[in-house]
Design a protein around this nucleic acid. Structure first.
Length: 785
DNA sequence: TGTGCACCTGTTTTT
DNA sequence: CAGGTGCACA
């Protein structure tokens, strides 16, 4: 056997090992060294390929590209048998024969955007590689990776190691304080938009000084640069970082301290970045610094799914990758394992209208499948009941609620949908909106715990110093904060020494009292479990008493705080060295998508943005109208329109089997009724892929229809459909004791009838599923006579 | 300092 | 329509 043949044999064995992947995915798996761009279309088995790639690196190293012909005769025979399928070899045996300097797992850095994605990656790696090997692979988000680096090195930039992380709400509070102390008004410079500009600047690695320089002559930008400067110095005073700082400061630290960079280059010799289309410039810079020396960088992404431009993601990172890394390999994953060809055709057709993209065309072996359904409704109520109809139809055919997702462009659109689902007794969950950790009471608790950990945290201090009310008002707070800023002291110190500051004289007792409580909390935090400390805090601060006084609402809030305790418990179970500080850090980097439970058998409601990366058997896309999707503000520029189109592409490709598109002729928005034409994206889909169900009333528009022999009935049917999409008996006909049948819940007995405006609420004891409340006009129920 | 009412202004949000 | 904000007044 020649050397070339031996190498070939090794490669065949590797291909056999990874035969669960298609050819393109295998290419990605075997491209271990150098720079690699994987363009992974929606549903193309991207994650499977990434996991495979890491497994290959850890088990076999660069054994595919750099295979040596050195093998024992014995091994050759075994390998030949393995390739021919005559024998199966264990992972260990194969590694023995095939590995060429396998990569040590701790030399691999795998970066994702969400905690969920990172967690999933760790789980899947553990399945393939075993706990031990998987644990030493550094798989985390940009932000947690950088936080870890900064905990070690941030003192080089003059921050303390135990810095606090501010979320956007904290940042906004801080910015408001900055604006209040400057010579501009919040009217001209809303905190939100100033922060946005600062955020974009940090994405570009622009410092306050640089911004001021660039802004010469531009009044607005000069003022913003000034605010940026104040904001940064106050962050530093509070020993706090905002989300953008986490990346910005890491890059800055690496730029200023090459010896630190080198340490991390030695540690992370192989870097993999998922969702590369969503990276911003600073993140690009970070990756570029880390991989500058060894050049082992693999990025995976889909330019067509770049939907976070408004948050600073630059699609140019992925589009320009080949220019930045001229020797890179480009691998396209276009075979889709999720959707039907019909859905893919529609998605391909829509996205093909974009100019700035890398050509890709998704295909599948799954077959054409059902046509896409376009429901034309009269208004949003009608639209919602069409969705409900489709869901109930699916249930009737043996499907599950959890197979269905309702996706929309704006959170506000969920309202009518939610009401209609409630009335129909369909279980659902809404994702997005107010996150658990965004609830006021939770943030208050976090704030109390934060100032115990870090008394310099001015923003969290400001948040709770008068919550519950203690007679420390805005005027006092702002005086106190000014002193703290000027003396670089913590508000705790200022309060303890309140008598030294004449301006505070009238408030000395309350301030001293607060300081005493604060110190008491600090002491307690040191010798109590986290949960006990939370209870203690709730008592000492008077928060519990204040909540009790609020009645029902307060009870609800206290329940949420109780739930925070269970977060603490699960944190303690998972963390290596649990601490209050660690818990606070985890909480600050945690988001609601992490709470997504695909197993719950409920209909999922969410924005298209939050649906990215998820898949559902049936997707109901509501509000496919000009002005909503694409949104009013996105229709002016080509770039924004293309982003909306990518969003449409994401939405369409979420569906496995069935896709329902919905339009309504009239839609109430912001309290007024709008009349929007169907979305241009809908029109970009070939009509042959769609079946249209029209329940609008259009007599005036089609006078010809009236004259045809069937016209009258057609119009009548439409009118009936428009009025009510389900044929149910009028409310007044239901009485207690009557037997009814529900499409989903089966038969049952009416046990209560509550009359309402022009409907009635029924309580029905169903034989199989127990008692349900239904609106007589909306639920699909029928009297059994 | 705390409250209530008139006014205004509305995308999307992985960390 | 609805939540957030600013301002006037107690």
């Amino acid at each position: 056997m020649t050397a070339a043949e031996k190498i070939e044999l090794k490669r065949k064995a590797l291909m056999k090992y990874f035969s669960y992947l298609n050819e393109r995915q295998q290419q990605a798996v075997f491209s271990v060294s150098g720079s690699v761009l994987v363009l992974a279309g929606a549903g193309s088995g991207k994650t499977t390929a990434i996991i495979g790639r890491i497994v290959n690196m850890v088990y076999f190293g660069d054994g595919y590209a750099k295979a040596s012909p050195n093998m024992f005769e014995e091994d050759i025979r075994w390998l030949q048998k393995y390739v021919d399928g005559e024998v199966s070899l264990s992972d260990a045996q194969l590694r023995d024969i095939l590995a060429e300097s396998p990569i040590r797992p701790w030399n691999i850095l795998a970066i994702t955007f969400t905690n969920k994605a990172a967690g999933e990656m760790r789980v899947r790696l553990a399945e393939k590689l075993g706990e031990e090997l998987a644990a030493s692979i550094h798989a985390s988000t940009f932000h947690s990776a950088c936080v870890r680096i900064l905990r070690r090195t941030i003192h080089l930039l003059g921050y303390e190691r135990d810095f606090t992380i501010y979320d956007s709400d904290d940042a906004k509070r801080l910015m408001k304080l900055c604006i209040a102390d400057s010579d501009v008004s919040e009217k001209q410079f809303p905190a939100r938009s100033v922060l946005n500009e600062i955020s974009r600047a940090k994405d570009q690695m622009i410092s306050p000084e640089m911004m001021a320089e660039n802004a010469q002559g531009d009044y607005r930008r000069m003022k913003i640069a000034k605010l940026y400067g104040i904001y940064q110095s106050r962050l530093r005073d509070s020993n706090a970082l905002d989300f953008d700082d986490i990346i910005y400061l890491t890059v800055e630290m690496f730029r200023k301290f090459p010896e630190e960079l080198e340490k991390y280059q030695n540690r992370f010799r192989y870097v993999l970045v998922d969702e590369y289309q969503d990276t911003n410039h600073a993140q690009y810079e970070l990756i570029s610094l880390l991989t500058r020396r060894d050049k082992n960088l693999c990025v995976v992404g889909d330019d067509d799914q770049s939907i976070y431009r408004f948050r600073g993601a630059t699609i140019e990172n992925i589009l320009g990758f080949e220019q930045e890394f001229p020797d890179c390999r480009v691998i396209r994953l276009e075979q889709n394992y999720r959707s039907t060809q019909t859905i893919l055709d529609a998605a391909n057709e829509v996205i093909a209208n974009n100019e700035g993209r890398k050509e890709k065309r998704l295909w599948t072996e799954a077959g054409a499948g059902d046509k896409i359904t376009w429901y034309k409704s009269e208004n949003e109520a009608d639209e919602a009941s069409h969705v409900v109809d489709a869901i109930l139809e699916h249930i009737k055919n043996g499907g599950k609620f959890g197979d269905n997702a309702v996706l929309y462009r704006m959170n506000a659109q969920s309202n009518m949908m939610e009401r209609t689902l409630v009335r129909s007794g369909i279980p659902y969950r809404i994702y997005g909106g107010t996150r658990f950790y965004d609830r006021k009471e939770i943030k208050d608790m976090i704030a109390y715990m934060s100032i115990v950990e870090n008394p310099y945290d001015l923003v969290r201090f400001e948040r709770i110093v008068n919550e519950p009310k203690r007679g420390i008002g805005d005027a006092t707070i702002s005086l106190l904060l000014d002193i703290a800023y000027d003396l670089h002291q913590s508000p705790l110190e200022v309060m303890e020494n309140a008598e030294q500051y004449p301006v505070l004289s009238r408030k000395i007792p309350v301030l001293k009292q607060f300081a005493a409580m604060w110190n008491q909390l600090i002491a307690a935090s040191e010798d109590m479990s986290m949960e006990d400390f939370l209870d203690f805090l709730l008592e000492q601060t008077g928060y519990r008493t204040a909540m009790m006084a609020l009645g029902e609402e307060g009870t609800f809030r206290l329940e949420n705080i109780e739930e925070l305790k269970s977060s603490m418990q699960s944190y303690k179970e998972e963390a290596e060295e649990p601490s209050l500080g660690g818990f606070l850090e985890e909480v600050s980097l945690y988001t609601d998508v992490d709470r997504y439970e695909p197993d719950a058998d409920t209909v999922m409601l969410m924005t298209i943005h939050s649906a990215k990366g998820l898949e559902f058997t049936n997707v109901h896309l509501i509000g496919m109208e000009q002005g909503i999707f694409p949104g009013m503000r996105s229709m002016d520029t080509q770039e924004e329109l293309e982003e909306e189109r990518r969003l449409a592409y994401v939405a369409l490709t979420r569906a496995r089997k069935k896709l329902y598109l919905h339009t309504a002729v009239y839609r109430k928005m912001y309290g007024m009724t709008m009349q929007n034409p169907p979305s241009q994206f809908l029109k970009e889909i070939d009509t042959s892929l769609m079946a249209c169900i029209d329940s609008t009333v259009q007599e005036a528009e089609f006078p010809a229809e009236k004259q045809s022999p069937f016209g009258r009935t057609a119009v009548l049917q439409k009118q009936r459909a428009a009025r009510k999409s389900t044929a149910s008996a009028p409310a007044q006909e239901y009485h207690v004791g009557e037997r009814v049948r529900h499409n989903v819940f089966g038969e049952g007995t009416v046990i209560a009838v509550t009359r309402m405006a022009n409907d009635a609420m029924l309580e029905v004891a169903f034989d199989q599923v127990g008692t349900k409340k239904l609106m007589a006009n909306f639920a699909k129920i029928k009297k059994l006579s």
